[in-house]
């Protein structure tokens, strides 16, 4: 009888630890996120997507802004996955690189703007919770994650652009060769 009771206690302990973690998440993370997300969502509604479209459309022309300003704004304004619809304003040959830049920012954005990707918060928050448990402030980590994210999506955009153009050129050559054979 005692053994069964001990097993039952051990079994419950597994889930009690989980319950404590859940309480910590709900009381520690949710209230701030709700208020922050509401504020940013209202701001976006007041500014209006049309105005943002106008600015971002122009910025797709230049390499520097195409892989930095445009994806960052698209994600903040439209969130994931609607931000990728912005590819329609990008020139056809730059679309894969634009996608790569945009999708690589859906996690760095969550430190400062959790509304943009509410369902994937734990990539950042999982690690941030550990940092917080040691008593450090999260502000600096969030800002650096955001800024390093911008640098990396820019490089990713450049490198993917080069690789795509190379693949396309090679594919073009292959197709002409095939055409010659026929």
């Amino acid at each position: 009888m005692e053994t069964i009771a001990a097993i039952a206690n051990g079994f419950m302990a597994l889930f009690k630890a989980g319950g404590d973690t859940f309480t910590a998440f709900v009381t520690g993370i949710i209230p701030l996120i709700i208020v922050l997300m509401t504020a940013v969502n209202s701001l976006i509604k007041i500014i209006g997507e049309e105005r943002f479209y106008h600015v971002a459309k122009k910025a797709t022309k230049y390499t520097l802004t195409r892989y930095t300003v445009v994806p960052v704004l698209a994600i903040i304004f439209m969130g994931s996955p609607m931000c990728f619809t912005f590819g329609q304003f990008v020139e056809e040959k730059y679309k894969p690189a634009f996608y790569d830049a945009a999708v690589s920012f859906v996690h760095p954005v969550t430190g400062l703007f959790p509304h943009a990707n509410g369902s994937e918060l734990f990539v950042y928050m999982g690690i941030a919770a550990g940092v917080q448990a040691l008593g450090y402030e999260l502000g600096e980590l969030a800002v650096r994650y955001f800024l390093v994210g911008i640098i990396i999506i820019f490089l990713r955009g450049l490198i993917t652009e080069k690789i795509y153009l190379y693949l396309k050129a090679r594919d073009g050559r292959r197709k002409t060769q095939e055409a010659d054979h026929v």
């Binding site: 734990f122 999982g126 919770a129």
Partner: peptide, 13 residues
């Protein structure tokens, strides 16, 4: 990524 992030976070803590 989220599960691994949480595990790494727990190890940092």
């Amino acid at each position: 990524a989220q599960v691994v992030g949480t595990l790494v976070g727990a190890q940092i803590a």
